[in-house]
């Protein structure tokens, strides 16, 4: 039985990969209990490397492992795994296109108490801008497992944005997974919501609420932020009157941006973003409280859909 906790699913998957393939090694920067890389340590102490609180060295060391035929997984909080190490990821890893796996744990606002310095809401933007980098953001722990199963063969570097918490199961049972796949989780013909990570389950809640008001809404899970399946985005954006993106990330450079980039050059319904405005996070007593503070809720998604639809009506009446 898969745990609904993304970090537990990650740690268990890493152990599974380690059993399957001796090339898998894990490097940690003193956050193993949080990232759950400790599960790998317990099973494979010889292939686990504690690198101390020195993320930059950890990243370039992983490049050396990969250049010697290994598949290294490096771990830290998302904010450090992407930001502290940006130059090392760029030069040591992405230029030579090495199969280093970067686990950005406690992504988004999920480290609610620790505040601005520890909440990673720009990581996807940074990682998306790096050539050769694949950027993944699982919507539930099933998807974590599915993604991890691809890690022995996927070429080049991969960045995972992993939430700290338990998330509702949304991945359709029996649905085959592949990196790059954009999955429609709910059919609808008036509005489309593209979500990633934690916001996928909130988008599904929003669509359900909208249905009671007679608004038919489709929900699409973008768990591969890069490379983004542009054709799928265009296909799922077609035929609706409103498009909303929802992400636990800055509205600059995340999936909202990625969806609009994908839709460039084709006519489409108006798009609005639900995400963190151009700001850092903040400390709060609880995660849900923080999500409400930043309006990362199903209510906000539904409200945004309705606002766009009203605007469309207004336009139609003017015409």
């Amino acid at each position: 039985m898969t745990s609904p906790n993304l970090r537990s699913a990650y740690g268990a998957s890493l152990v599974r990969l380690g059993k399957k393939d001796e090339r898998v090694v894990a490097l940690e920067a003193d956050l193993g209990k949080s990232t759950q890389s400790v599960m790998f340590q317990a099973e494979f102490p010889d292939r686990y490397f504690q690198m101390g609180i020195a993320e930059q060295n950890m990243a370039s060391t992983a490049a050396g492992f990969a250049l010697s035929g290994m598949i290294p997984f490096i771990h830290s909080f998302a904010v450090f795994a992407s930001g502290r190490t940006y130059d090392q990821l760029r030069n040591s890893i992405c230029i030579p296109n090495l199969p280093v796996r970067i686990c950005g744990s406690s992504a988004g606002l999920s480290d609610f108490g620790d505040g601005k310095t520890h909440q990673g809401v720009e990581d996807a933007a940074l990682m998306r801008s790096l050539p050769n980098m694949t950027v993944l953001c699982p919507a539930d722990s099933i998807e974590v497992e599915q993604m991890m199963d691809c890690m022995l063969d996927w070429p080049g570097p991969v960045y995972f944005r992993i939430n700290r918490n338990d998330l509702p199961f949304v991945y359709p049972e029996g649905e085959p997974y592949s990196i790059g796949k954009v999955t429609r989780l709910r059919e609808g013909n008036e509005a489309a919501i593209f979500g990633s990570g934690i916001m996928v389950s909130k988008a599904l809640e929003a669509a359900k609420a909208l249905e009671t008001e007679g608004i038919s809404t489709r929900v699409i899970n973008i768990s591969t932020i890069k490379p983004l399946d542009r054709e799928a985005v265009i296909r799922y954006a077609r035929g609706v009157d409103a498009i909303v993106t929802a992400e636990e990330h800055s509205i600059i450079g995340g999936i909202g941006s990625a969806v609009v980039e994908a839709l460039r050059g084709v006519s489409h319904a108006p798009v609005e973003f639900v995400g963190v405005p151009d700001s850092f996070g903040i400390s709060a007593e609880g995660y849900d409280e923080l999500l409400v503070h930043f309006k990362l809720t199903s209510d906000e998604i539904a409200r945004t859909v309705k606002t766009l639809l009203k605007g469309t009506e207004k336009c139609a009446s003017v015409l």
């Binding site: 060295n57 490049a63 050396g64 492992f65 290294p72 030069n91 040591s92």
Partner: peptide, 25 residues
């Protein structure tokens, strides 16, 4: 060429990773 270097300060880390991997193998 064995690695990408030039953004200064990274080569010793890469070499460390290589030496660790080679010892493991």
């Amino acid at each position: 060429m064995e690695a990408v270097t030039g953004s200064l300060g990274q080569g010793l880390s890469i070499a460390t990773g290589m030496a660790l991997a080679l010892r493991l193998r």
